[in-house]
Design a protein around this nucleic acid. Structure first.
Lengths: 191, 191
DNA sequence: GTCTATATAGTGATAGAC
DNA sequence: GTCTATCACTATATAGAC
């Protein structure tokens, strides 16, 4: 239930973001969105053409938010390892999973190029941004020159996305933390 | 459409496995199962109490199969790194994702302890089994003693599970391969 | 064991009044 | 902009005949 101070379209978008995160696209019905947003059937279809249209708006906003969150941990001054650690160790609602990554398991999102696009872009951007940081680390002698920045970046993103899977399977955030600590140990500069 | 030589329950289980992999629990309807299995409504409810019952049978079988597949790569004689590489590099239908891991993103699976149990057990077993291999590697001096086997095992499983996310987001298996190569580079014994 | 009939609720909209 | 009515279809079964 969203504040009455929010406009109707705004409440619909926020309700959709919430439900997409919780239940995915296939598991989210227009009716559920309307109820969570306290908006009538007619209103919803006045502001948005259909479920896909609303979901697209919601996904784009969520992806943009995640990008900003990541940049906040990676865009600071400092050593590459420290930036990566900061990204990996930032506070997360682990058991809820990643609101963007989880959409990749949704058949209707993957089947629809328009819905998949913002998901793809966000993850591609993150891989590229992390590759930059790894490249800096190699350049500074922090990491061995044998490492391929794009590969390590993919490993980092995968560890996070997969960490959510482990955590949700076991019902505990501990599994996520274990995976992250393992990766940090592997990345740690040998002194 | 499954062979007529398979029994009715068998066709139902196989159809359910297929659909759970493709569309998840929330996205799979009894009707879709019946059609794929070429089994009538009445037949399905004769052999299985309901959707949950059938899904449970299907999930258990898939988990068991995955366990056997993993053991085939990890249970051989050889160095720890080689076993891990063999596990990571085995052939996979990358764009389809993991038939067990994907269920962790399904709200109705996570909300139902009975459905979650086989998923949890399979992933817990895999983490434990990989931890054993890492422990062997540490014992043999293949990996630094500073590594915590349970953590590295979690990182390995997470990289695989997350690799599927990257691949499906980008629509290409290349992202999965990149993540795996990055992890193998980090694990590679420094000579 | 399999089939058809029936049932309640939900899905994803469209139409038109207010 | 919002509301109610309506719609064809699907979801998830249950009941009972064959």
């Amino acid at each position: 239930m969203y504040s009455e101070s929010m406009s109707t379209p705004e409440r619909l978008i926020e309700a959709t973001r919430e439900l997409l995160w919780e239940r995915g696209y296939v598991g989210t019905s227009p009716k559920a969105i309307q109820q969570l947003a306290s908006v009538g059937q007619g209103s919803m279809y006045h502001h948005f053409a259909n479920k896909q249209d609303l979901a697209l708006t919601a996904i784009r906003r969520t992806a943009e938010e995640l990008r900003a969150t990541a940049e906040a941990t990676l865009g600071v001054e400092g050593a590459a390892y420290a930036k990566i650690a900061s990204y990996l160790l930032r506070e997360r609602d682990v058991l809820r999973g990643c609101p963007v990554g989880r959409l990749t398991m949704d058949p209707d999102v993957i089947a629809d190029d328009e819905l998949r696009a913002p998901v793809d872009e966000m993850i591609a951007w993150l891989r590229g941004r992390l590759a930059e940081v790894v490249r800096q680390g190699v350049r500074d002698g922090e990491f061995p020159a044998s490492l391929v920045p794009e590969e390590i970046a993919s490993t980092i993103v995968a560890t996070v996305q997969g960490g959510y899977v482990l955590a949700r399977a076991s019902g505990s955030p501990a599994a996520f933390d274990a995976g992250v600590r393992g990766l940090l140990a592997l990345l740690a500069p040998r002194t």
